[in-house]
Amino acid sequence: MTRPIRIGLQLQPQHADYADIRRTVAAAEEAGTDIVFNWDHFYPLSGDPDGKHFECWTMLGAWAEATSRVEIGALVTCNSYRNPDLLADMARTVDHMSGGRLILGIGAGWFQRDYDEYGYDFGTPGSRLADLAQALPRITARWAELNPPPTRDIPILIGGGGEKKTLRCTAEHANIWHAFGDLETFTRKSAILDQHCADMGRDPAEIERSVGVQRSPDEIGDALVEAGATLFTVGQDGPDYDLGLLKEWIAWRDARR
């Protein structure tokens, strides 16, 4: 299976006014990015821990109306924060609002302050991963029952690199796997994902490989493609969203076509 190279932006919704976020989404779409992600947290992850911050899914609903071409999604939704059936309905609704451009990015959750401040049970890494494994079949089952159903088979992106549980869950349920770490880590964990797919009889080529990038494509792009990555996402923090690196990756993508 030959996949096109795609470029994403993770627009981190912290330390910025919403007007700045909205302008950056429009600029990223105009520049030619393929996907714009946010993230699912309630507080900043860097800088002033009590700085400006906005909620994930209401923002995605606004982006669905404010954009016309790019896919949108969270990198990633925390499974713990919403009932899986509710999340399925939210995703179906944003899918319709966007004309079929939603990606459901999801993970087990990790940022303890979100849990403590908003009254969720933090549990353990094992319990959160078990909850994610139970939630994914409920989400897909709910999509089948909704009227109207989603406009398409909503792609599921799972982020994380846990070798025994997260990657097995990815092999079972995901269309996209988002990796964290350097080239060596990506290559090793991608091979583990391939083995999980083989163990359950799934073609590993069905899962798109995604990776976050913070260096020039001239430095790392070709090596990551050779390792199997086809979706490259640049993270940008507020309030001054600099799209220079994103545009480098877009130009690199276009030069390969």
Results as ranks from 00 to 15, higher is better:
residue 34 D to T: 14
residue 251 A to E: 11
residue 243 L to Q: 09
residue 23 R to Y: 03
residue 11 L to D: 02
residue 57 W to E: 00
residue 85 D to P: 03
residue 203 D to H: 04
residue 105 G to V: 13
residue 95 D to L: 04
residue 101 R to G: 06
residue 218 D to W: 10
residue 151 T to H: 06
residue 151 T to K: 12
residue 10 Q to P: 02
residue 50 D to E: 14
residue 163 E to Q: 15
residue 201 G to Y: 07
residue 89 D to F: 07
residue 104 L to V: 11
residue 121 D to L: 14
residue 82 R to T: 01
residue 153 D to L: 13
residue 118 Y to M: 15
residue 90 M to F: 12
residue 143 W to N: 05
residue 149 P to A: 14
residue 30 E to C: 09
residue 160 G to F: 00
residue 228 G to F: 04
residue 108 A to Q: 06
residue 229 A to D: 02
residue 178 H to E: 00
residue 173 H to W: 15
residue 139 I to A: 01
residue 27 A to Q: 07
residue 200 M to W: 04
residue 28 A to D: 00
residue 2 T to W: 11
residue 17 D to R: 04
residue 239 P to Y: 04
residue 191 A to C: 07
residue 216 S to P: 00
residue 6 R to A: 09
residue 162 G to Y: 00
residue 228 G to E: 07
residue 227 A to F: 12
residue 63 W to E: 04
residue 202 R to Q: 08
residue 58 T to N: 12
residue 59 M to G: 07
residue 205 A to C: 04
residue 154 I to C: 08
residue 253 R to E: 02
residue 185 T to V: 12
residue 110 W to R: 12
residue 247 K to W: 10
residue 83 N to H: 14
residue 74 A to T: 15
residue 184 E to C: 05
residue 250 I to R: 01
residue 199 D to F: 06
residue 210 S to K: 10
residue 106 I to P: 01
residue 233 T to Y: 10
residue 80 S to T: 09
residue 217 P to L: 12
residue 87 L to V: 11
residue 97 M to R: 12
residue 151 T to Y: 06
residue 30 E to H: 12
residue 25 V to A: 05
residue 45 L to I: 14
residue 24 T to Y: 00
residue 151 T to M: 13
residue 252 W to K: 07
residue 142 R to N: 11
residue 227 A to E: 05
residue 237 D to K: 10
residue 248 E to G: 10
residue 40 D to I: 01
residue 36 V to E: 05
residue 187 T to E: 04
residue 207 I to E: 00
residue 175 N to C: 10
residue 150 P to A: 11
residue 30 E to D: 15
residue 127 S to G: 11
residue 230 T to P: 03
residue 117 E to W: 08
residue 177 W to K: 07
residue 70 V to T: 13
residue 8 G to P: 00
residue 230 T to Y: 07
residue 48 D to N: 10
residue 41 H to R: 05
residue 234 V to S: 03
residue 131 D to I: 10
residue 221 G to V: 03
residue 75 L to N: 11
